[in-house]
Design a protein around this nucleic acid. Structure first.
Lengths: 207, 207
DNA sequence: TAGATTGTTAATCGATTAACAATC
DNA sequence: TAGATTGTTAATCGATTAACAATC
């Protein structure tokens, strides 16, 4: 299998969303230049990305829409349902837990943890001191960290100890983890700062 | 001014968070190799990034921590307070609005909009039909889109018409916008799919 | 002074874009 | 057949890494 770059992987969900939207309009085919126009990625690159997941197009028509969608769903692993827990039942953690859509894409959030007794109902939200045993018992693959930065490393240590190999880190702290643990940082403040600076540069460019 | 790459800009907030944490421990200096170890970025690259924002280090010591923090704050624009509105007062939109931290970093969320009458209080949450006039009246620079994908383009058209030049797009829809409008996509489902696939590749690598 | 660390120039690597052949 | 679009190879571009000189 040829290796697929991170950049390609990050673009595929964009193609997927677009393909699903186009399907609603009753279209049967989608061309690389159509995708290019809307997603803002060069059409050659779109074709390379699509080729990389093994989906072939038809000259003069483009890609069969349903087929492309199936290839994307298969590649992105919609059907490998994964259990996840959220640590930190604050605003963001709670919002993520309520976002029903995740399940369709393979992310099944089965519990939240917090150390604030007021948030604990022992049904959906548990005390953080039960985190380790819960993870071991319930086949949890993913931990979603929505705790304040000061606690992130300690929580990470705990869940790694319990066997977690995938961390979706919404905290502002860079985590020190062993090589076999995969961390995906999604701190939204960092996101905002990046957006803010890049937009500034974009303004200057358009002056 | 030399141009600073998007990759550099995306790393700077990571350095910033680390620097702030280290400050709490009473340290006065921070070295590029220390940053490298924790953030997971080559130390040469760290030095280039820091040099790019004009901050100079001291051989044998590293960077003065407070000085580095000041340079980062200045570059990332913490003091340019920007007004923002959130469109879509669902779980995520509401959570973002409640996240008080944003204000420290220059993001001032001054109102939310929704079309569901049950969510409207005409104090913090307004009817979407007032969006355009509100944006024009209140010096709103940033629109945060947390609406379902089907409505994203229509909302985008409205706010662009009202003069918005920066969109933080949490919806799963790629937006068609004029070149002077800057869009930063942060769809969390796409985020999860990327995380999921990359972690899979990471697993294989570690077998 | 010796040694650690910064700063910079050159080399490498990989991603994107350009050119164009293949094909429906 | 002609033309549009895919698929692929080559060229370009930019980001990262390596090597090493400068400096405190």
């Amino acid at each position: 299998m040829q290796k697929i770059s991170q950049s390609t992987i990050q673009r595929l969900p964009l193609y997927y969303n677009l393909a699903k939207n186009l399907l609603k309009t009753g279209k049967d085919f989608i061309t690389s230049s159509f995708i290019s126009d809307i997603v803002g990625v060069d059409d050659t690159l779109v074709r390379k990305d699509v080729a990389a997941i093994g989906c072939a197009g038809k000259p003069k028509f483009g890609y069969n829409l349903r087929e492309l969608i199936l290839y994307l769903e298969k590649f992105l692993g919609f059907n490998n349902q994964k259990n996840a827990v959220i640590i930190g039942a604050g605003n963001l953690g709670t919002a993520l837990a309520r976002y029903a859509n995740f399940k369709k894409y393979g992310l099944h959030i089965i519990a939240l943890f917090d150390k604030d007794p007021k948030k604990i109902d022992n049904e959906r939200v548990f005390n953080t001191n039960k985190l380790k045993s819960y993870v071991k018992k319930n086949n949890v693959e993913i931990a979603i960290l929505t705790v304040p930065g000061d606690f992130a490393q300690a929580v990470a240590d705990t869940i790694i100890d319990a066997g977690i190999k995938i961390i979706w880190n919404f905290s502002p702290t860079s985590l020190s983890t062993p090589g076999e643990v995969f961390v995906w940082n999604q701190d939204l403040v960092s996101g905002f700062l990046t957006l803010s600076k890049l937009s500034e540069i974009n303004m200057l460019k358009n002056k």
